[in-house]
Amino acid sequence: MEVVDPQQLGMFTEGELMSVGMDTFIHRIDSTEVIYQPRRKRAKLIGKYLMGDLLGEGSYGKVKEVLDSETLCRRAVKILKKKKLRRIPNGEANVKKEIQLLRRLRHKNVIQLVDVLYNEEKQKMYMVMEYCVCGMQEMLDSVPEKRFPVCQAHGYFCQLIDGLEYLHSQGIVHKDIKPGNLLLTTGGTLKISDLGVAEALHPFAADDTCRTSQGSPAFQPPEIANGLDTFSGFKVDIWSAGVTLYNITTGLYPFEGDNIYKLFENIGKGSYAIPGDCGPPLSDLLKGMLEYEPAKRFSIRQIRQHSWFRKKHPPAEAPVPIPPSPDTKDRWRSMTVVPYLEDLHGADEDEDLFDIEDDIIYTQDFTVPGQVPEEEASHNGQRRGLPKAVCMNGTEAAQLSTKSRAEGRAPNPARKACSASSKIRRLSACKQQ
């Protein structure tokens, strides 16, 4: 084909351009004929944790799935940006308080904090938690009735009371019990989460009196709706648990309003109706937990002794299953770290194939690490110290990083047969305790 000078094309009309061969290198194709290559998922490591896909996002930050490269346990990490926390009232204080509380709590029905990582340079905090497959609110939203069968609701409620009793025994008032803060594992274990607005009572406090509340409006008791200066913290949790039980068994809320002012007005009056299909035992329990006067409201001991709580409820309806993943529609909620794991395991070791967030990740503290002497050669063979940054567990980050890069360049065919977990650990520049 004859090559045409581009400067001469402006002298031709459209018809003349076609005659000189423009149609031979300008093609129009339908979008259905285009085959897009999927974007390669680059592996990203935060300390010893391999990052997966997004699980959810809230006002405080994002939650992603991660894999512990040492234990191969599935975890969830809450990623918090200090810049964003400053824009939220009491944001930083709530996060630090939640970390302090979770560090000393150990119960099967309370979410466990596994690790805390802090990135000084990017001003990011990573709260590594045990993995929960789904939230209770997500399960309720997945069915038209917006409720659980009585047998399933009873099982979840009993676990909620177990976890709540443990928190109260530790002198902690949750203040925000609701389905949105109750998570579930694949085995059906309920976990109380989000202790950001919780309050730890003084060890020598005479009672459970509280003065502040930041919980969700629909789950607040009349004493808070009416603006009382002080109130019983434990009875606030009992009320919120009662509203939660009402919601998961009926699909409704005892109090509603077009806006928060109308909602608080209705809560302050204390008038509500219980659907007739709840039955006398459940209705009596709800009335005891939603008692207007805090002094007359049920205690956890009274809830445990109630006939509806103690009764064994046979399954009359099919239980609400864990819904498919909202993004991938995966009904099994498979591990989202698998594509990243395959990338590390299947590809040659190259620095361009993975990302390490930083050479140094500070753990379990908000301060910069200490310094240790770096050896410097002298005339008599002895070495003197220069400062060298280290990880919180004493690992020399720069030395590990250099060693990792040197190993990656060394030709050794046997290394390709290593397991995925050992490869992740070798790529991680800074081991965590």
Rank of each mutant, 00 (worst) to 15 (best):
D365L: 09
R28L: 03
L80G: 02
H379T: 10
L344H: 07
A206E: 01
G233W: 08
D359W: 06
L17M: 05
E375Y: 13
A218F: 09
A225P: 09
T250R: 03
L80E: 11
F157L: 01
K64G: 02
H313Q: 05
V63S: 09
Y362T: 14
P411L: 08
L286N: 01
L341A: 13
L286S: 00
L201F: 04
Y340K: 14
R310C: 06
L54S: 08
R333D: 15
R383V: 09
C73E: 15
I161T: 10
E120F: 13
A429V: 12
C73A: 15
K269L: 12
S428G: 14
G56A: 04
A410S: 11
D350G: 09
L201E: 02
A398F: 07
S59H: 07
A316V: 04
L263C: 07
K84W: 07
P324E: 13
D277I: 12
W239E: 00
M289F: 00
T250I: 10
A225L: 13
K423R: 08
A295N: 09
T249A: 02
S401R: 07
F231V: 04
K44A: 14
K124H: 10
P413L: 10
P144L: 03
E120S: 11
Y36K: 09
G196R: 00
P411K: 14
S271G: 05
L101M: 15
G394C: 09
G242M: 00
D359V: 06
V114C: 01
E265A: 10
N266W: 03
A347P: 08
L55G: 13
L160A: 06
A398Q: 14
E342F: 07
E351C: 06
G135C: 13
D68S: 09
R106F: 14
I300P: 11
A389R: 14
G394D: 10
R40H: 07
G61S: 05
P323K: 14
L341N: 13
S307L: 12
A406C: 13
M125K: 06
F298L: 03
V243D: 00
K78V: 00
P89L: 02
A218H: 04
I177S: 00
N226E: 01
K287I: 09
A218W: 03
K146R: 14
I356T: 14
R384P: 14
S419K: 11
P6I: 15
K82S: 08
M392I: 11
D162C: 09
E293G: 02
M139K: 11
K311I: 09
A76W: 00
I88Q: 00
A76L: 00
S307R: 05
P321R: 09
G370I: 14
K81F: 05
H345R: 14
G180C: 07
N181L: 00
T230E: 15
P369D: 15
V3D: 00
V20G: 11
S422E: 12
M18S: 10
G135F: 07
V173H: 02
H379Y: 11
K312L: 10
Y36G: 13
D348S: 14
S240I: 02
K41W: 12
L17T: 15
I224K: 08
N109W: 02
V63M: 04
T71F: 08
T185P: 01
V128P: 00
Y118V: 06
L140F: 00
Y362S: 09
L67H: 02
D343T: 13
L195P: 12
P217V: 01
V197G: 02
D358S: 12
P369K: 11
G268P: 06
G270M: 06
K311N: 04
D355L: 14
V150L: 02
I424Q: 13
S193A: 04
I35G: 09
I224M: 07
Q364S: 11
E14D: 08
A389P: 10
V110D: 02
E317N: 14
R147A: 04
Q8L: 12
R74V: 03
A429Y: 12
A241T: 00
P369S: 13
Q37A: 10
T363H: 08
G268F: 08
V4H: 15
I99Y: 00
G268C: 09
D348R: 08
P38G: 02
I322G: 00
I356E: 15
T328P: 14
V390D: 11
R409I: 09
Q305F: 13
E199S: 08
Y36W: 00
N90I: 04
P315N: 13
N259G: 02
V150S: 02
L190P: 01
S419F: 12
E342S: 11
D327Y: 10
Q170E: 01
Q399P: 10
E357S: 13
P280M: 06
V34F: 05
T71I: 07
N412I: 08
H202R: 01
P144E: 15
G47S: 15
I224V: 04
I46H: 14
Q112V: 06
S378K: 15
T395L: 09
Q123P: 02
R297W: 00
D350Q: 12
V114A: 04
E349D: 10
P369T: 13
D359R: 13
V63D: 00
E92Q: 08
P315D: 13
P294Q: 11
V4W: 08
K41T: 09
V173I: 13
P203H: 03
D358N: 04
S19L: 04
L50P: 05
R304Y: 00
N247D: 04
M139D: 00
T244Y: 01
L17D: 15
G180W: 12
W308C: 00
H27P: 10
R415T: 05
E223V: 02
G188V: 02
A406N: 14
N181S: 00
R426S: 13
G135A: 14
P221L: 01
Q137G: 03
T363F: 01
A347S: 11
R331I: 08
L113H: 04
V338C: 05
C132F: 01
G408K: 14
R103Q: 09
Q371F: 07
K124N: 09
Y253S: 02
I248T: 08
L184P: 01
L45I: 05
R28A: 13
P369Y: 11
T249M: 12
A316I: 10
G135I: 15
C132W: 00
F234I: 15
V368C: 14
C278I: 02
V110A: 01
P314T: 13
P373M: 14
A218Q: 09
V34C: 05
S283P: 08
P413M: 13
T13I: 06
S334F: 07
R409F: 04
P319F: 12
V66Q: 07
K84E: 04
N259D: 07
R415L: 15
P89Y: 03
Q100P: 06
Q214P: 03
